[in-house]
Amino acid sequence: MIIVREEKLVEKKEHPLIVSVSPHVRGEETVSRIMWSVNLALLPVFIMSVYYFGPRAVYVTGLCVLACVLSEYAFQKWLRRKVTISDGSAFLTGLLLGMNLPPGVPFYIPLVGSVVAIIITKQLFGGLGYTIFNPALIGRAFVLISFPKLMTIWYKPTSAFVGLDATTTATPLGILKEGGLGQLLEIFGDKMHLYEKLFLGNTAGSLGETSAIALLIGAGYLFYKRYITWHIPLSFLATVGVLAWIFGGKDIETGKLIFFAGDPLIHLLSGGLILGAFFMATDYVTVPTLRKGQIIFGVGCGLITMLIRLKGGFPEGVMFAILLMNCFSPLIDRQVRTKPFGAVGEKKK
């Protein structure tokens, strides 16, 4: 083949055209839109936390958010990397960490938790997309283990926006663990009152975990936006519910285990379960990507949660359950595969 470039044959025109690989149109979804939407979904939860725990809620959460965003900024500046604080993910970590702390913690707990969450758990692993563990939960686990006393002082919620009630108390799960259902009912009156308070959030607990209704509104928004699917939350909650029903029942007098007599609703509505199942166990980066794997993940979270709640030393196990299952995410993703189109080669006639 003779290669003759006849430049004059085809008239040269200068077009500053952009060349790139297809596709040439893109959807509107962006990482930062997703992250800010999740932040928005936590707004009702935050409002309820302020309602019940007053200015302390703003103080603790604000510290977390500020510390998370600043440590991400500082770390990325230091490494001369692109600063990504505007994508909303550091803000979200801070918000989630705040929602997971008791209202009365001293200022250094949010700070330490945030630095551990952002620098150690997120940035040292490579930043958004590369984390193995949920940053907010590692931050919380770190401060829980480092300051066990301070992290387990719970305050009674007060009525509307007043501030912290000085009365400390145990969380419903704590009472259930120590004193059993009998004592829990003694405090709350009857089961309906208990459910009602758990549902609205008028119980002691971490800032954002108490109000089931606020959490469900936020989760509903995420479902509506299709940012989360049912797979993890449902399998997580269902496992907890079933296990609570089977193994959660105790004879009030003797404390002996009675099978199939537990109250699933108490376990479902209390502690950090709803917050964890809808907002933490659905963190894209640290959970399996395939739907089948997500169900395995959810069931695993439920199992560990109930194992800790019923048999472990802590009254609550959601945090450790999610963190432990985070370890398995890569393994689950490796074992579960999608079914490619035409893989079986079956011919339907």
């Binding site: 690989v21 930043g127 997309g129 590369y130 894209y284 990507t289 189109f341």
Partner: peptide, 25 residues
């Protein structure tokens, strides 16, 4: 026109798995 040179790490949201007509990951 959408620039494609400014991309970030995969956040493993799974959107692509949900749409792949060939059922791939």
């Amino acid at each position: 026109y959408v620039a494609s040179d400014d991309y970030s790490a995969c956040i493993r949201c799974g959107s692509c798995i949900d749409v792949c007509p060939m059922g791939l990951n």
